[in-house]
Amino acid sequence: MASGIVTPKYVSDFSCIGPDCEDSCCIGWNIYIDKQSYKKTVAHRDLKTLAKTAMKKIKRSDDKWAIIRADSDGACPFLDVNRLCKIHSLAGEDTLSDTCKTYPRTSLVKEGDKYQSLYLSCPEAARLILFSPDAFMFERKESGLKNLLSTSPLWASKTYDNSIDLLLNEHLSWQQALLAIGLLINTADKVWGNEVDADQLDIRLEQLMLLAEKGVLQEQYKTLAYADKHQVQAFATIHGMFIDVHPRRDGERFKTVNDAISTLLNDDKTVDIDKINHAWNTIASPALEEHGDIFKRYILYYIYHEYFPLTLGDAPQSAFRLLVLDCFMLRCYLAVIAHKNNGLSESDIHLCFQVYHVVRQHKPTFIKGATAMMEKFNFSSVAGIISLLKTGV
Rank of each mutant, 00 (worst) to 15 (best):
S380M: 04
R297L: 00
Q354I: 02
F131A: 08
L120T: 01
D63T: 07
F78S: 12
Y160F: 14
G74D: 10
W192D: 14
R60T: 03
G384Q: 14
D165F: 11
N194Q: 12
A335T: 05
L47T: 10
R83L: 09
A279P: 00
N162F: 09
T159Q: 04
H362Y: 12
E124L: 10
I67V: 15
N162T: 01
H291I: 01
Q36T: 09
L154G: 09
D98Y: 09
I181F: 04
L388A: 05
F295Y: 05
F379N: 06
I17K: 09
G112F: 01
L90W: 06
V324G: 01
R249N: 15
T53M: 11
S173K: 01
Y119N: 10
H291P: 01
W192K: 04
A198Y: 08
A75H: 04
A2F: 07
V271W: 10
R204N: 11
N341P: 00
K141I: 01
V359W: 02
M209N: 13
V216I: 14
D197I: 02
A156C: 03
M329A: 05
S345I: 00
A198N: 09
A91E: 06
D23A: 07
I276H: 09
K9M: 08
S132Y: 04
L210T: 07
D34K: 00
F379I: 01
L217F: 13
